[in-house]
């Protein structure tokens, strides 16, 4: 495959090794986070939900960044691999955004007192989720690859720009959700666990995007084969 971002010939086993490393890193980081962090002054042990909620949100943001880059590069260079990369990242972003919302809900119930509220951070995140669903639905409904790539790049750029709004929402508007933490507001006892978990989530993110990208490439190969077969059959009929 010329111009291939990830060679299609890499065996699935290599991805499996990356996957095992990523999940093992997650186990290690979570165990350390769970065992080494003292209960928080306000939240008690509930602070530990931070180690899954925050890394899930961060990696979802990164996935949307990949969607943005892939979409822009596609419109610029018109090479299929960028479109497939954006599509792969979008599906992973959808999974991680949904996970982030669900984890936030589980965290919000005992700390804020509600599963859900119409706070700008929560609302913009839900909108982002629906936009991503729209992006993927659009892809699944357009059969012609060139058109699909062009249209979904336009929709993908719009959706992924919304990430900026989600990220800045806690600063622009008065919200129930707290503003971003920084090293000065998080005690070192929690910072280490958070960083390690974020790193493990990053590995999981890379694993997911690579795997999904490979699936996207193979799907295109299957599509191309089917087209070639139809063409061959058509010629046979004419002869």
């Amino acid at each position: 495959m010329p111009g291939s971002f990830v060679p299609a010939v890499v065996s699935r086993r290599r991805y499996q090794i990356l996957g095992i490393i990523a999940l093992a890193a997650l186990v290690g980081a979570e165990l350390l986070g769970l065992s080494a962090s003292p209960p928080d002054r306000d939240m008690g042990h509930l602070q530990k939900i931070m180690y899954v909620h925050v890394p899930a949100a961060w990696s979802a943001f990164l996935a949307f960044f990949v969607v943005f880059i892939g979409s822009v590069l596609y419109l610029w260079k018109r090479e299929e691999r960028y479109d497939l990369l954006a599509a792969a990242a979008a599906e992973v972003a959808l999974v991680l955004t949904a996970l982030t919302l669900a984890l936030g809900s589980i965290w919000g119930r005992p700390t804020w007192g509600v599963w859900w509220t119409w706070d700008p951070r929560l609302t913009t995140t839900a909108i982002l989720l629906v936009m991503t669903v729209g992006y993927l639905a659009l892809r699944s409904f357009v059969d012609e690859p060139d058109r699909r790539a062009r249209w979904s790049a336009a929709v993908g750029i719009l959706a992924s720009l919304n990430v900026l709004v989600v990220y800045k929402s806690v600063q622009w508007w008065r919200t129930l959700h707290q503003v971003q933490s920084s090293p000065s507001t998080v005690d070192p006892a929690y910072a280490l666990g958070l960083r390690l978990n974020a790193l493990a989530f990053l590995l999981v993110l890379v694993y997911f995007i690579l795997l999904r990208y490979r699936a996207a490439r193979l799907e295109r190969l299957v599509e191309a084969q089917a087209e070639a077969r139809e063409l061959a059959q058509g010629e046979e009929l004419h002869v």
């Binding site: 639905a137 659009l138 409904f141 929709v155």
Partner: peptide, 19 residues
Amino acid sequence: IASRVRAREVLLPLLLFPM
């Protein structure tokens, strides 16, 4: 976009309403 797609009745609101 949506009018040239198979499931246009669903897709248009799905793309349009969040924006």
